[in-house]
């Protein structure tokens, strides 16, 4: 955006009409965000952007262009995290065109119109930067959440001295099985547990793949000297397993976690008795 000194009408217009353009810009953007961000905050953001745009449009200021892009990237990242939609984010940039165009038409200056076209395509570029940053920020958010979900949904708990519990919730795929297996085995080493109860009450469906993954986990635990019990086999799941012809071999399976715990206690030679009245 560097024009000859004599015919740069737009920079002049940006300077003289600063208040009007900024106010109109703020108005358009505010309409879009509907109170999820305060007017004061927005005004501070836009004023900063406006100053950078002014410097960049005036020409010869490479630094301002870079700063502008950085500032836009920062804003779109925070918008993405706050859950704004892509168009709401992009509008914050594109609205400046509308605000400025209104100023240009008010002056009816043909030269300014011509410069405005160039300005417009430049703002489109800025809009693309915004959008790209927005998209990558959102992807980052999704990736973070997936990781958290993976960790959240695979706890290994201690049920008793020497007995671990692995309550599985959600669908079992290879990635999750890997995490479950690793967490369980690490905990086995830490605690020296002799029994592990894998509870599948929260697993919505068991097909051959899930069964294969369960078997692998049990085998790996066995290699480390720990016996596994699978609990939480619901009636429908039992039917599916039989219908699919899946064999659990000599792995003990129980209907409920309580049964599995009782079995594990019995195998470890622990007896739990109620207190008798004196």
């Amino acid at each position: 955006m560097s024009d000859g000194a004599g015919k740069a009408h737009l920079p002049e217009l940006l300077r003289s009409g600063r208040e009007a353009v900024l106010d109109r810009w703020l108005e358009v953007v505010l309409e879009g965000v509907r109170g999820r961000i305060t007017e004061r905050e927005l005004k501070a953001e836009l004023t900063e952007l406006y100053a950078l745009i002014e410097r960049a449009v005036a020409g010869g200021d490479e630094e301002a262009g870079r700063e502008l892009r950085a500032a836009l990237a920062e804003i779109s990242r925070s918008r993405a995290r706050q859950g704004f939609s892509p168009s709401e984010t992009a509008v914050s940039v594109f609205a400046v065109k509308q605000a400025l165009l209104e100023q240009v038409s008010a002056t009816a200056d043909m030269q300014a119109y011509a410069e405005f076209i160039e300005f417009s395509s430049w703002v489109d570029d800025l809009g693309l930067v915004t959008f790209e940053t927005y998209a990558s920020a959102r992807e980052q958010v999704i990736a973070d959440q997936m990781e958290q979900l993976l960790e959240l949904s695979t706890p290994v708990v201690k049920l008793w001295d020497g007995i671990l519990g692995v309550p599985l919730v959600g669908t079992l795929d290879s990635a999750r099985t890997q995490v479950v297996m690793e967490t369980l085995l690490e905990r086995l080493v830490e605690t020296g547990a002799q029994f592990a109860v894998i509870d599948i009450t929260g697993v919505p469906a068991v097909d051959t793949e899930v069964a294969q993954h369960l078997l692998k986990t049990v085998m790996a635990a066995r290699l480390m000297g720990t016996d596994c019990v699978i609990s939480g086999v619901r009636p429908q799941i039992a039917q599916t397993i039989v219908a699919l012809g899946i064999e659990f071999g000599d792995i003990a399976t129980k209907a409920s976690l309580a049964d599995a715990l009782a079995y594990a206690l019995e195998c470890s030679g622990i007896q739990v008795t109620g207190r008798t009245e004196a």
Binding site: Q178, M181, L188, V189, K216, A220, A221, M224
Partner: peptide
């Protein structure tokens, strides 16, 4: 070790 057990499986 856990890693060895997983490999064998």
């Amino acid at each position: 070790r856990p890693a060895v057990a997983i490999t064998l499986v």
